[in-house]
Design a protein around this nucleic acid. Structure first.
Lengths: 197, 197
DNA sequence: AGTTTAAACGGAGGCGCCTCCGAATTGGAG
DNA sequence: CTCCAATTCGGAGGCGCCTCCGTTTAAACT
């Protein structure tokens, strides 16, 4: 999963030197892959090595493992939000909504294993958690409203209903077939929500 | 997590070799001191060194840090129970009760810092926690009943009342004066419980 | 006693965490 | 363009965790 634009000049960036910024981005990118593949317990030295920097550099940018996990988590949320914008432009509104929900499920799937780690972070920094939550809600809202404006989706459904449905999908036991099952449920959900004509 | 009885009866040890038993005991003793002085995070290698055994020996006897903590915890509970027996023989019944309660507070004081660690253990092996709890209750009961039989303590007090009182002492915030405060409360408690004559 | 054997020992070695500080790089000033 | 100070790099080194396996030793047997 590659980010479309590594030039994300946002955040409270206290003017980082060019090399510092490069290394930081590379570390985040490598960490995202590593966490997804091997879980949050992945060796930090391994991540530094794969990013082509020294372990010291990793620790300067991210004092603790949790810091790194948090940044990766935020970045992926951002990518998810960006995907919503793109889909809205390139697909019919109802299709955009459906595809984005599938991507969302995909995202949740990768986070399944690290739920406990995220819980620790959430409790120590609930502001971050709230922010991420807000972003997701906003994406849901935009996509849903657009589809409803075009009369493709029933109007008696709200963003909160959709999120509720998604969270119940998450609560399905963590079996190997979880992903399939979740995707099937999204199909059902969409069928029910589409305006019949 | 309802663990019925997966336990093998290894509490009645499968006859340990003499040197093994000696090393095991020494490790527990050293660990008890180390945990009390430096908390449960103490280096296990340090404990092995101070006990005069190799690190391998420590790990053979106690596969994880938690195993060791648990055994130490149980041993100290046993010592506390033994103290109740001794005091009952060497002191007047009401004095025995009071002194034992002070020892109990002392014990709780040393466990204050490692509350979170013990919580983890308790949740993974609640049987052990229950057993320790039972031993304490039994000690309370013996000492209290004896004092009441000799008409030194009011008879409208039960063992459950005493334990309740002690647990409320534990809930006092963990300040440096906690110990004094706790001991003062025990004084009050005893005064109130003694038969006036 | 001597012999046998399974249990127990113990530490080397591999790995990961984290810190520290001399070396290298950047980017602004002249 | 050059120079310099500030910033960043990076890996060596110290420590702790845990495993593995050759060596030692208790104790059962003859």
């Amino acid at each position: 999963m590659a980010s479309a634009t590594p030039e994300n000049a946002d955040k409270t960036a206290p003017k980082l030197r060019a090399d510092a910024r490069r290394n930081r981005d590379k570390l985040i990118e490598v960490a995202a892959t590593a966490f997804a593949e091997n879980g949050v317990e992945t060796s930090l030295e391994d991540i530094a090595r794969k990013a082509g920097v020294g372990i010291g550099t990793l620790y300067r940018h991210f004092p603790t493992r949790e810091h790194l996990v948090e940044v990766v988590y935020q970045r992926e949320l951002q990518i998810l939000a960006d995907a919503a914008e793109e889909l809205a432009l390139s697909e019919a509104a109802d299709v955009a909504l459906e595809q984005w929900m599938r991507r969302f499920v995909n995202y949740m799937a990768t986070k399944r294993g690290m739920a406990s780690s995220l819980k620790i972070i959430a409790s120590s920094n609930s502001a971050m958690f709230a922010e991420g939550f807000g972003r997701i809600r906003s994406s849901f809202d935009k996509l849903l409203t657009a589809a409803q404006d075009q009369n493709l989706i029933r109007k008696d459904i709200g963003q909160a209903d959709l999120m509720h449905a998604m969270s119940s999908i998450y609560s399905i036991p963590d079996t190997p077939e979880w992903r399939e099952s979740a995707n099937r449920l999204i199909g059902l959900l969409m069928d029910g929500m589409r305006v019949k004509r």
